[in-house]
Design a protein around this nucleic acid. Structure first.
Lengths: 218, 218
DNA sequence: GTCTATAAATAGATAGAC
DNA sequence: GTCTATCTATTTATAGAC
């Protein structure tokens, strides 16, 4: 949990690009946790994938659980920070909404293991989510709420439930990014074309349904 | 994998309602697999929850993996069969589409652990999914495709990608049903009202966006 | 900071009596 | 069909040398 100091307290300059054992472990661990889940992940596999000695995990993070927490926290914090930036911009609400969708997609791609981990945490009831991560998750919905409010106040949007809009945006996007593996297998199982959907088509699709959802009387 | 015979071959009458060790195991296992995933599930916990001796799992199913397969297969087969029934009805396509949404929701409630397990399998890349389960998953999309086709042919729907429509329907629904635990925790983390959404509101919402998606020019 | 060797706990699975 | 006792492999984690 506690972040180890790599430089003496007297040195304010960030560590001069070390081999990055810690970073390599974080990246390898995210991939393993995403593909196999917390329980299914083996510490030895993380170490092997990072080409780092297993003991380093305990040196840097203390435990498998603490390592997982670190990854979870970073991910949800990044998403929250990104959508916050979108909402803070000086754009009309329609544009912010489209940017909100794009931000989720961008974050899912920047951290390719986020969608899977997110799905798993949902299934698990969020038992690994700490107070900060939970706050970040709530923050994303809250931020979407402010965008919707802006639209309602300026009489461009009808009043909608932020949680429903959130689900309409986030669930299909995450499903798309998390399901690359399954879609590839479905392609071979008789659903030709399942592997052929593009990221842009999905983002555009979600942007369209979102817009019609908040604008139309539907 | 192989289903055990509980009556001699000469007897065609189904077993006279035994205590149901097998059924108890299936129910307890579904709950455990949903909450903890395949790797996180402990065989001992399944046995304890079912109030059955652990050795019975191996007697009835052979292995933890085979037990999981059985549950997976049943779930996807049931969903597939249900949406097939919807598509085969003599309703107009608009009605079939609404019924398709309702069928997914109904199945998610009838087997309360289906949504979580489904999310986990997505995250896992479908590595536990056998040929039949994969076929059932593909079948659901294919069936949705026939409904959409019917609408297009009768000039009531515009042409849409079945996989996109499928994601728009299934992802928010499963998210809702799978996230009860997380929403309860979000409620306390500052997102008041997260726990208060009703099943009916979500189903109605998905039905509305689906309809506007296939009808409108959007 | 990094490594090897190993402790300590726990898991899935089976043997064999009843 | 059901149970107890146990085997074997695996897993997280640590001790201690370098």
């Amino acid at each position: 949990m506690a972040r180890k100091q790599t430089a003496p307290a007297s040195d304010r300059i960030p560590p001069p690009a070390p081999p990055g054992t810690r970073e390599r472990l974080l990246a390898a661990a995210a991939a393993e946790f995403a593909a196999r889940g917390f329980a299914g992940t083996r510490v030895d596999r993380i170490a092997a994938a990072a080409r780092v000695n297993k003991a380093m995990i305990y040196y840097h993070f203390g435990s498998k659980a603490a390592l997982y927490q670190e990854i979870l926290g970073d991910m949800f914090q990044a998403v929250n920070a990104n959508v916050r930036r979108v909402a803070a911009a000086a754009d009309p609400p329609e544009e912010k909404l489209a940017q909100f969708v794009a931000a989720i997609a961008r974050e899912a791609e920047a951290r390719p293991h986020f969608p899977q981990i997110w799905f798993r945490e949902i299934a698990e009831g969020g038992v690994h989510l700490g107070e900060p991560a939970l706050g970040d998750m709530a923050g994303v919905v809250l931020t979407l709420g402010t965008i919707l409010d802006q639209g309602v106040r300026s009489r461009r949007f009808r009043r909608t439930d932020p949680l429903l809009v959130h689900a309409t945006i986030v669930a299909p996007l995450l499903l798309f990014f998390a399901s690359a593996g399954v879609r590839r297998r479905l392609d071979r199982a008789g659903l030709s074309g399942a592997g052929g959907i593009t990221r842009d088509a999905v983002v555009a699709h979600v942007q369209r349904i979102t817009r019609s959802l908040v604008e139309g009387r539907v």
